[in-house]
Computed example of a mutant assay.
Amino acid sequence: MPDIPPRFRARVRHEPDRSYAVLVDGPDGEVLVGATGSLRKVRTVAREGAARLYGVTAERVDEEYLDMVIPQPPYGRDGQWVRIISAGESAAPDDLVDLGKVGQAHWFGHEGAWFVTVTGSGTAIYPSEYLDFAPTVTDEEVAELRRYLARSAPSPS
């Protein structure tokens, strides 16, 4: 059984279907340990995969010592229009308020997700699987969001 390293390195690869392939550095190099359709589950997949690679229980792989790298997906770019198509498993009214709305997205690498600004409700963080990156956007939606962004921008001093 290989020694357990003090830190584990994991990397996410964005798949064309917007799922996440999880790769972990093991004793024999980087290995694909699993995939998930949920950003919330990538750390669990990485932790369990590292445990398998090193022949230990998942409890021995402390999430605090897991370095996760989630690059910006190839299908999204900063400043692009997106439509919010899911609230995940949440049925909370606050999570459903922006469902179906158009917003402007910017990559937030630290979270491995997107900051999306929506007219009226501001900016929230969304994982890629909650967004349509090729939405049909009306002229009215574009004008409304541009007006909202212009009102929200700090005035020059």
Rank of each mutant, 00 (worst) to 15 (best):
A51V: 07
Y75E: 00
L96I: 05
F115H: 09
A113T: 00
Q72Y: 09
E59V: 14
Q104C: 08
D62Q: 15
Q80A: 04
L66D: 01
E89S: 15
E111M: 10
E63D: 11
R60K: 12
Y75N: 08
K101C: 10
S86G: 06
D78E: 03
H106T: 11
K101R: 14
Q80M: 14
M68N: 04
G120P: 06
V69M: 12
D98G: 13
P74M: 10
I70N: 00
A58Y: 04
E111Y: 11
G122T: 05
G112H: 01
Y65V: 01
D78C: 11
S121I: 07
I84Y: 03
A91P: 09
H106Q: 12
Q72M: 15
A87H: 12
W81S: 05
A91I: 13
D78Y: 02
R77V: 11
G79A: 07
R52W: 09
D95Q: 04
E89G: 15
F115Q: 06
D67N: 14
E63F: 08
G79E: 04
E111L: 11
T119H: 06
A91C: 12
G100C: 08
D95S: 04
I84C: 00
A87V: 06
D98T: 13
E63Q: 13
W107H: 05
E64M: 14
T119M: 07
L66G: 07
S90C: 09
R60V: 07
G122A: 06
W107D: 02
G112C: 02
V116H: 00
V118G: 01
G88Y: 10
R83A: 12
I85F: 13
G112P: 00
P74C: 08
V69G: 02
G112A: 03
P73E: 03
E59G: 14
A58M: 13
Y54G: 04
S121G: 03
T57M: 09
F108G: 01
P71Q: 09
P74R: 13
W81M: 08
L96R: 04
L99E: 05
G55L: 10
F115R: 12
V56P: 11
Q80W: 02
V56N: 08
G103S: 09
G76H: 11
V61Q: 08
G100K: 03
D62N: 15
V61G: 00
A92C: 12
T117Y: 00
V61A: 02
G112W: 03
E89R: 15
L99T: 08
V116A: 04
S86P: 06
E64C: 13
A92R: 15
W81Y: 08
A92H: 15
Y54T: 07
P93A: 10
G79R: 11
S86A: 11
G88V: 10
F108Q: 00
H106I: 07
T117L: 04
E63K: 14
T117A: 01
I85C: 12
Q80H: 08
E59S: 14
H110D: 01
